[in-house]
Structures are given as C-alpha cells and as structure tokens.
Design a protein around this nucleic acid. Structure first.
Lengths: 205, 205
DNA sequence: CCCGCCTGTTGGCAGGTTGTCAATAGGGCG
DNA sequence: CGCCCTATTGACAACCTGCCAACAGGCGGG
C-alpha cells in the first residue's frame, strides 16, 4: 500500500553530474567574482552536497579553472572557403566573420575575456595564453602566412599582442558602446594589415 | 637599576602606519595572487596585529584595491619638450620614453597590468579604466590632437583599445621574452600612426 | 524477484580565515 | 608627574575550505 520511500537523491553518471555542477559554476562565476562565490552556495544551487564538488574537481580553484577553460571554447569561425583576393580583402572578410561570431555569442565572449578574478594568476594566464596561441594560428592561416618560417615566432608574438587590442576593442563596442561595429572592423583590419605589411615586412620582408 | 621595560610596540602616525602596511601588501600581492595572501601573514610581515589592517583599510578587498590604485601611479614620462617634427618622429620619441619608463619600473608595471588585466571585478575594472583614460589623454597631447573635437570620443576609444595591445606587447617583451624592445617599439609606433592617420583620418579626416 | 556489491553521494569534523569590538597601553601635553 | 587621547592589541564569532569515513541508490548475478 505505502509506496516505497522516494529516494532522497538521484544517482547520476559522473560526466552528467560534473556537467551539472560546471553549468551552475559557470553561471555563478559569471555574475560574481571568485571570492564572492562560496562552495556552500554553489553546492546548494547545484542541489548536491558540498563535498561532492571537492570529489569531482578537487578544489574550488580547480573548479574555477575548469570554468575558464570551458568558456574559452568559442565556436570557431570557419576558415575554409575564404575569398581569394588581396590581403586587405581577405583580412576584411575574416574579420567580418570573426565579429559576427563575437556578436552572436557576445555574453560568452565577454565572460571569457573578462575572466581572471584578481591578482596575477599564473594558471589563468596560461589558459588565456593557450587560447591566444590558437587564435594566432587561425589568423596566420587566414592571411596565408601559415607556412612562413622567417621570423615566425616574432610574428606570432605580434599577433598575440594584436589579440590584446581585439579584446579591448570588442569591449569598447559591446560593453562601453563607445565604438560601432563598423569602427571596430576598420580599426582591427587596418591594424592587422599594418602589422603584417609594415612591421613584419620591415623586419623579415 | 632596572631600565624601564621596553615598549612592546611603537605608536606611529596613521599615515606612516598606513604606508607601512601598504608597502608590505604591495610586495606580497605582487609576488602571489589575491587569495594566496592571508591577512594573518600580511599582519605578521608588517609587524602589526591583524586587526589593525581592518582598522586602516576596512577589509582585505579594500586593501587590495588600494594597492592597485597605488600601482597604477606610474611616474609619468614627461611630455614637455617633445621634439618638433613629423608625426612619425614625435610618436617614435614619446614611445621611446614610454618604453624607458616601463623598463625601469618593469616589476611595478607588470604587477599593475597583470592585476586584473581583465577583471570581472567592477572596482578593479573602474580603476584600470581611469588609468587608461589618463594614458589616452597623454597620447592625444603627444601627437598634437589634444584639441580635436570631431570624433574625439571615438578616437579616445581607439586609443584605449591600443592600450590593450601595448599591455600585451610589453608582456611579450618582459615576461615571455618573445619580442625585443626594438620590435615592440616598431610594432607600437606603426600601429599608433596607422590608427591616427588611416583609421581616424578615414572617419573624420 | 531479491540480494549483494560497486560507487556516487552525503554529512560532519578539523584547521584556517575574516571582520568586529572592547580593552590596553604608548607617548604627547598641561 | 599624571592625565587623556587614540593607536594598537588580542580574543571572539561566523564562515569557509578540504578531507574522509559512513551511507545508500540502483544495476547485475543468482
């Protein structure tokens, strides 16, 4: 007659539970900064015991790093089928796709480049650096310099520096609203072309 | 006969004590990130009771913000007596002074821009933004566009974006050692000139 | 259909951290 | 010399994090 007592908690697959906690962490870390989020609250909002978070991620810090790593995965804008044309045309086209992706995933992008808690954090810095490396490779392909050998590392370093400007510029566009999309496009295209033709050209032309 | 018992602690002027704690905090936050520094250690190394830190700065967070604010005060590279000449020459000269200052205070500079570089933390973000504003004004003076009215805000926004690249580039130079000082100089000069002549010129020329 | 085992999950403990506040004592001044 | 102002201390309460032994959901063998 009496139905069996409803289980007090459901047993999930590790991957599933992990993803659930990660999603909740992404949300909380997204709206508040590191130290303002306690594992206690994280556990409560995830609907699990606090100890489970340590079981899956080890430490609060590692959970945070997992979130950052996760956010850095931005759907890549297809590089294939880029129009053949002058350097300027190809840069303009790829930058256009880039901004389109950013615009569609603006929240995620801002969260990703805006992540970093406070204080210099070598771990976070390393993750950001890896992401910049990937972006640099993509740009090299785009502009058809993927096979360059002379001054390759310098060029990559300059492109990583350029990424710093791209991040700041998209923030001006999407957060401060002080630049329009077209202005950002012009700014980034001009700069990128200048770096490739003038700077890299001067040094290793 | 017995000399009077040596006082167990010295009474200092508030400003003096405040500065002493701040100096210690600057050192510790410079070598480790926020959460890895405890107020307990801060107090011990400062040679004061932990409670005194809260008395002077309120909270650990506010102490941190005070450090950041302090670090952002970089001795300004004199703008006066800039050589009269072409735009390129003036930009090159001012950039040279800029890099010289950076080189002399590299630890401080890296701590400042590494701090939050990109912070979801609104307070830190606001401080960094103020510093960028000041830098933008200085650049405008340098290139002799301080009086511009057409597209002034857009130009400032672009210069702030440029600051993002300058930060990343100095990091490549001083931390990763992937760029030389000369290469950074060339990169920044070329970019800045391109922004002013091509981008700003195109839009509001 | 029931039982036993594997392992996902819990809950409480120990050490450490932060902000507060009443009490203490340095040292300048009348 | 002694008073008084206030810089400074030390202890307390609340909280947080990492750890771990114990518990129980639910799948597979008998």
């Amino acid at each position: 007659m009496t139905s069996e007592p409803a289980p007090r908690w459901r047993r999930l697959e590790p991957d599933e539970r992990r993803a659930q906690i990660l999603a909740c962490a992404r949300r909380l870390f997204g709206e508040r900064h590191y130290e303002a989020v306690s594992t206690t609250e994280l556990a409560r909002q995830s609907g699990v015991a606090r100890g489970l978070i340590n079981h899956y991620f080890g430490t609060k810090r590692e959970l945070y790093l997992a979130v950052v790593r996760d956010l850095m995965f931005i759907p890549e804008y297809a590089v294939e089928r880029l129009p053949r044309g002058t350097l300027e045309e190809r840069v303009a086209a790829s930058m256009d796709r880039f901004l389109a992706v950013i615009e569609r995933n603006s929240a995620m992008w801002l969260a990703a480049i805006g992540t970093g808690g406070y204080g210099r954090d070598p771990d976070v810095e390393r993750i950001m650096h890896e992401a910049d490396e990937i972006a640099a490779d993509r740009i090299l392909e785009t502009v058809g310099l993927a096979g360059t050998t002379a001054g390759r590392e310098e060029l990559r370093a300059m492109i990583r520096s350029f990424s710093g400007m791209a991040k700041a510029a998209t923030r001006e566009w999407l957060v401060s609203r002080t630049l329009t999309r077209d202005q950002v496009h012009l700014l980034l295209c001009t700069t990128q072309v200048a770096i490739i033709t003038q700077v890299h050209g001067t040094l290793f032309g």
